Amino acid sequence: MTTQHQQVQTPTGTTPEAEPAREPRTGCPAVAGRSPARMAWNRIRRDKMTLVALAVTVLFMMIALLAPVLTALTGWGPITPDGKAIDPDTGNFPYGSLGGISLTHLLGVEPGTGYDLFARIVYGLRTSLLVGFASAVLSTVVGVLAGLAAGYSGGWVDSVLSRVMDVMLAFPQLLFIIALTPVIQNALQTNTHGGTDENLRLLVLVLNIAVFAWAYTARLVRGQVLSLREREFVDAARIMSAGRWHILLRQLLPNLWAPVLISFALAVPQNITTEAALSYLGVGVIPPNPDWGALLSDASQYFLQDPMYLFIPGVLLLILVLALNLLGDGVRDALDPRASRS
Rank of each mutant, 00 (worst) to 15 (best):
V31I: 14
L175T: 06
S241W: 09
A72R: 11
V160Y: 04
V285H: 03
M62E: 01
N191W: 09
M61V: 12
P81Q: 06
A21H: 12
D329S: 02
A170S: 15
A236P: 14
A299P: 06
L322P: 01
T74R: 10
L70E: 03
A236K: 15
I262G: 10
A242L: 09
P29H: 12
T15L: 14
L161N: 07
N42A: 09
R46A: 07
L324E: 05
N186P: 05
F118V: 06
V31L: 15
L174G: 13
S153E: 05
P29R: 14
A258M: 14
R231N: 07
P88W: 00
G282V: 02
G293Y: 02
L188V: 15
P20R: 06
G33D: 11
S227L: 11
V268M: 10
L174Y: 15
A170H: 08
A146M: 12
Y309I: 02
G243D: 10
N191F: 11
L73D: 09
S97P: 08
D329A: 03
P78M: 08
P88Q: 00
L65G: 11
S35E: 09
G75M: 07
W214S: 07
P290I: 10
L228F: 04
A276R: 04
I209V: 11
S139F: 02
T217K: 14
G132N: 03
A215P: 02
R332P: 11
F118K: 05
G284E: 04
L174H: 12
M308D: 01
V225K: 11
R238W: 14
L256C: 05
G194A: 04
V56Q: 07
D82H: 06
P68K: 13
S97F: 13
P307W: 09
F60L: 05
T181L: 00
M61A: 12
L205Q: 06
V204Y: 03
K84G: 08
V58E: 00
R231F: 01
W41M: 11
V52Q: 02
Y152G: 06
P259Q: 04
G108N: 13
A218W: 14
L161H: 04
A242D: 02
F133V: 13
N208E: 11
T15Y: 11
L281C: 03
P29F: 15
R219A: 15
G284D: 02
R219D: 10
G112M: 02
D158E: 03
G27R: 10
I86F: 07
Y95D: 04
T3D: 13
S297V: 03
F176C: 04
H5M: 07
Y309V: 09
D306K: 09
I101P: 09
V160P: 02
V315P: 00
G154W: 07
L66W: 14
V206Q: 07
S227H: 12
T181K: 02
Q4H: 13
P182R: 06
L200C: 10
H246W: 10
W292G: 01
G27F: 08
M308Y: 08
I262A: 07
L125F: 00
A267T: 05
A294K: 14
A334G: 04
A149F: 03
I101Q: 12
P313T: 04
Q9D: 13
C28Q: 11
Y95E: 05
K84W: 02
A37D: 00
L103K: 12
G284L: 04
S153K: 04
P259I: 03
A265E: 00
Y152F: 10
R163W: 07
L203E: 06
A53M: 01
G284M: 05
E19R: 12
G151C: 08
G151P: 11
I121W: 00
